[in-house]
Design a protein around this nucleic acid. Structure first.
Lengths: 341, 341
DNA sequence: ATGAAAGCGCTAACAG
DNA sequence: CTGTTAGCGCTTTCAT
């Protein structure tokens, strides 16, 4: 009636608890024959291991480290806050956070090199795309530390997984929204990026241009602004463009610095219909802008899911458990004024 | 260094384990003075209970029952599948599913009355809005069973919580998408519902009409079709309307029966630009329609989140633990062709 | 290669 | 009111 335990399995297979434990955890030192017999018994009884009991007995903490870029980027601060708040929520796991200068590959590489493999089992890192980072990451793996990239990927590096949204798809989604919102008014589209040094921005741009070119050919895409995710730079640059180009119909802000977009827009409220605006990441500011009608849509990645996917992925990696190849894929969320959470 | 346990708390407070356990679980039989002393010690040591150990020792199964409407409704079948698959995923919880005729308040009430309080601790039910259901639900509560509504709410009944999306907001979201997609082509908008007997459909319609009337006044809303979430009825009804009304610019399908919408549309492919279409719930069919361009957007509620929110809410309710008042609120997701998961 | 025994942190009788 | 004791299901030495 009640769920079978290893005791039941042991009895059924005519072996001791330890032996059952050995085959349950693929440990060495079991004759093939007994191996089979135990596995058989498990199957017959429909045994399922009680993870709570296992963790309790194991009494081991996985030590994870998150490396995030510094700066006023609301999204990254949100991740950091989430990590701090919920760091007690994962049983048998301790979480540390380290902040490094944004868009600075050398600093990131140095941080990666400084990770102590004796005190860290796994690392999640928001990657900057550069050879020194790749090298540091490979070295870290060699020293036995599990590594996943977070938010911005580094494909063909030695990271074991990526946790985040598909950024090409995100860009495509932005284009298909912005394109329809601008329909009937052909003109110029401005892309506001942070830096093409980070993969996520480059990928979003790619996806955006793919779809916009193919499906909304009457819109002309201007060369992207690089605002370094800094609201003041973004504001200044965007203001300049809006001043020079009278017929901007849409703006896609694919990085942070969203407050700069809002402010530049506010400075041009007069006269012509305001451009349609799609930005990334729901923050207090983008939410406000959605509510007051200055932005049309927000493409979002949920920090809560992102963190918990990263943690459980790293846990599996560290514990040597099998990992679903597309665990780590977070959904792309779309928010309009009316479905704000 | 290591996390403090009740042993540490007991020692620090100069009491036994049982006493610590008593204050930890708000059990009766502790003098106020000791109460304070123990609480004090916990705070000072930064004690946090180890839930795994607690569950292990408690060795109690919460028995939950999910009551879902029958029929070919893909969304409901999805919930059912999810429940079956993950029913082993919740520790210390057993889950049963019961299917009842759709849109049939009497049958639902009967099922509710037949629930055995001796074998069921909590119930999650997709409610049909009707007095007999309310009564049956109240009776169930009186017999000591925890009750939450799922997907479709029954406000001002005795259910303790609702788990699902905000359906008024969902309708508003649909309107703000469909309105923009149809901009420039004023004409008629068709709403395809299942039945106004279920609250979720009524609420979606309400939200939809609010926004469409206010923000897109050049669109005319036709009286809603009631397709009873049946693809054949939906197809026939919609086909009739499309035949009679040549200038339909948009369709909002707020219930199930989405395949009927796709088929009716296919029958009218010829000539005029096809209407913009927004439907509910991502299913294999709506996904296909999004991909081949016959639907524009899908408003979705994630069955996985829905189930896990319902389970953990019921668990808390059953165990007498405090419940966050808006646990149970699931986000409204928007899918376009480009951000399909 | 296999087994016995001692916990992990907490709860649940049962005694005082 | 408070304390003692025996587990929950599994892992982990340490013997054999």
């Amino acid at each position: 009636m009640t769920r079978p335990t290893i005791h039941d399995v042991a009895r059924a297979a005519g072996v001791s608890l330890s032996t059952v434990d050995r085959v349950l955890n693929d440990r060495v030192g079991v004759r093939h024959a007994t191996q089979i017999r135990v596995a058989q018994a498990m199957r017959e009884l429909g045994f399922e291991r009680n993870a709570a009991a296992a963790n309790l007995a194991r009494r081991r903490q996985d030590r994870l480290l998150f490396i995030l870029p510094a700066g006023s980027n609301s999204f990254m601060r949100g991740l950091e806050r989430e990590l701090a708040q919920r760091s007690e929520a994962w049983e048998f796991t301790s979480i540390a956070v380290q902040v490094v200068p944004a868009f600075d590959d050398v600093a990131l590489a140095r941080t990666l090199q400084a990770v102590d493999p004796g005190a860290t089992d796994g690392v999640a890192v928001v990657a900057t795309d550069s050879p020194v980072v790749r090298a540091a990451l490979a070295e870290l793996r060699e020293r036995g530390v599990a590594v996943v990239t977070l938010v911005s990927d580094l494909p063909s590096s030695r990271r074991q997984h990526f946790v985040g949204i598909d950024n090409v798809q995100a860009g495509r989604t932005a284009a298909s929204l912005l394109g329809r919102f601008c329909r009937g008014r052909s003109g110029k589209i401005v892309i506001v990026a942070g830096s093409m040094l980070v993969r996520d921005h480059a990928e979003r741009r790619l996806g955006f241009e793919q779809v916009l070119r193919a499906e909304f050919p009457d819109q002309q895409i201007l060369p992207p602004l690089e605002g370094r995710d800094d609201r003041d730079i973004v504001e200044a640059e965007l203001d300049r463009v809006l001043r020079q180009q009278p017929d901007v119909t849409g703006i896609y802000s694919l990085g942070a610095g969203t407050r700069g977009v809002a402010r530049a827009l506010a400075g041009h409220a007069a006269g012509a219909p305001r451009p349609s605006v799609v930005v990334h990441d729901l923050t207090p500011h983008s939410r406000q802008a959605l509510l007051d009608g200055s932005f049309d849509a927000v493409i979002h990645q949920d920090p809560v899911r992102e963190i918990s996917a990263a943690v459980s992925l790293l846990q599996s990696l560290v514990r040597g458990q099998p990992v679903d190849p597309d665990a780590g894929r977070i959904g792309i969320e779309v928010f309009l004024r009316d479905n704000l959470p």
